[in-house]
Nucleic acid binder design. Sequence first.
DNA 1: ATATTGCATATTGTATCCAATATTAAATCA
DNA 2: TGATTTAATATTGGATACAATATGCAATAT
Lengths: 218, 218
Amino acid sequence: MKLQAYDISKTASAATIIFDALRHAIITGDLKQGEHLRQDELARIFNVSRIPVREALLKLEQHGLIRTQRYKGAVVAGLSLEEASEIFEFRAFLEPEVIRRAVPRMSRSLLDAAEANCAAFATASDPMDWGDLNRRFHTTLYQASGLPYHMEVLSKAMDRIDPYLRAQLLLSDGMERANREHLAIVEACKANDANRAADRTRQHILDARNSLVQHWKD
Amino acid sequence: MKLQAYDISKTASAATIIFDALRHAIITGDLKQGEHLRQDELARIFNVSRIPVREALLKLEQHGLIRTQRYKGAVVAGLSLEEASEIFEFRAFLEPEVIRRAVPRMSRSLLDAAEANCAAFATASDPMDWGDLNRRFHTTLYQASGLPYHMEVLSKAMDRIDPYLRAQLLLSDGMERANREHLAIVEACKANDANRAADRTRQHILDARNSLVQHWKD
DNA sequence: ATATTGCATATTGTATCCAATATTAAATCA
DNA sequence: TGATTTAATATTGGATACAATATGCAATAT
């Protein structure tokens, strides 16, 4: 009988498990802006004491996903139109640079994976998948950049605006347009045209921002 | 008798006080890369229980200033040359855009404050001040940008490379050159030339990165 | 009717304690 | 003498308990 090597110090702590669950609930919109996160209630839900719950809430606060006030508790953070818009601008500054760096280093299989993602996007019927697919599309392309710090920062920025992006994909022709633009980006990547991929990425992000601004109803 | 309004919910928790103290020790180099941060020892130093210490360490980890491993404890994070270089690149992508946005909105008093900072930089004899002054110079200029999210992200990036920047200011002609470049940036700002200010900012950051690379001895 | 005060309950911050795991030293074995 | 096993100690993760503060409601005062 063969035993799998197993590093206990690599296992996830209770706080990490709770953090992941709450972060996912926030970015998918299951936990909405303004909702209170009560420590005792969460401790009961996850069947733990308040200590790992507090640690999970602390991480969420550091990620900007919730706001806490001493002795008053935590609420799910929302973004104003200005704040959301600024994060799109941030992405529009940074993601073109990341993809510009990534394009020359993209392998055939990476490009295939990106195209497969577009195909999945086109056929996905469950809106819950759209946000994940959109996000995976971008990170798939960027991972060839060799810029892990940039990707980490962008991942946090995406966490902040994900609830809005996901809602926006449901509106108007968000999905169709997003996928057309995704395919255009992949086409530029396949042509090994870093500048064109960068331009299209930037335009795609600004288009998404403009669409969100038009439909804003906070 | 007049009483000052005082919002108890705005006071800093023990965890926040400990976090601030440890963060400062790390970015100024008082706590060095690789040093262990033991919960019990820190609890004794700050005269608290381990709980606020754990919470402070968690925040430091979220800021990338320390690394923790389950059951094994925390160590002060260092950066490889590649990682440090990437963060400079990140700044070089982002800070020009921030200052470009800030220049048209800079008030006379803000420009005066920036120049006063350069004067203080030129006369500061205590190397412990140089890092603070350098950092304050950049944030002074950027605050007119109206991009608080960008500034928050840049502040965290600066935290990561501060120990290296501060060390680098001590070497060679780091100080003199940094101040010359700071003055050149201010000059472009006073001329209301956003593009020139952006170009100079980018070059300044890349120069600092190149100087750091040359003197790297990790 | 409104303002103020007192009290109960809810919630959070932190202290203390226990269990789990890692590390180091001592004892034992080949 | 070196390898292995066992025991002791150090350290961390999480549970429980206590203190501090916020909130809401009832009682009282004006």
